[in-house]
């Protein structure tokens, strides 16, 4: 896992973006990750997979990923290109799926930080420093540090690689 990542922000400021929106029910039978990526965020923005480039970020309202335990949700987002999500809070299963599967980083930030970042801003996330640098706006924000175990799992690249 790289400790400094740079990418473009895709912002959906709504709170409670749920897993049915991120990857609708009919696609749950699909287990091909590339195929799932084509339907990422279909319930909110069908153009999403075409807008995102590898290494981009999502900035969203609170309780992101609420709803079902479908791991298809972080899989679809990460294979569409998203490498980190900045939100004031995440639903618990989405959070642990994202981390344990090693798909992408769920990063908790203040509500105000979400307000300050705009769609298409270029942002740098520095996990070691717990800092987010908005290169477009020349601003810096803090992120909530990962709890100890989460940081270790992130470093290992997922729970399967983590040695207890």
């Amino acid at each position: 896992m790289m400790t400094v990542m740079r990418g473009i922000v895709h912002k959906y400021k709504r709170a409670n973006i749920d897993t049915d929106v991120i990857i609708p029910g009919p696609y749950l039978k699909i287990h091909d990750h590339k195929e799932l990526a084509k339907h990422a965020m279909e319930g909110l923005d069908p153009q999403f997979p075409f807008k995102v480039a590898q290494g981009d970020f999502l900035v969203t309202g609170s309780n992101f990923g609420c709803g079902s335990s479908r791991e298809h949700a972080p899989i679809a987002l990460s294979h569409a290109g998203i490498k980190a999500i900045l939100s004031p809070s995440f639903a618990r299963i989405f959070y642990r799926n994202a981390v344990d599967g090693g798909y992408l980083l769920p990063i908790e930030v203040e509500e105000a930080t979400v307000d300050k970042i705009s769609d298409k801003d270029e942002v740098e996330i520095d996990i070691k420093q717990n800092k987010i640098n908005n290169l477009t706006r020349n601003e810096s924000y803090t992120m909530k540090p990962f709890p100890e175990l989460i940081a270790k799992i992130v470093e290992a690249g997922g729970l399967m690689n983590y040695k207890v």
Binding site: G67, S68, S69, E71, I93, R96, D100, M160
Partner: peptide, 25 residues
């Protein structure tokens, strides 16, 4: 491997939903 695994907590068990990587683990 389903979010509504919580259901079975009505029997007095700790019941929680997980994603498929966690279930595989």
């Amino acid at each position: 491997g389903d979010s509504h695994t919580n259901t079975t907590g009505a029997l007095g068990a700790f019941s929680a939903g997980l994603g498929h990587t966690d279930i595989a683990y």
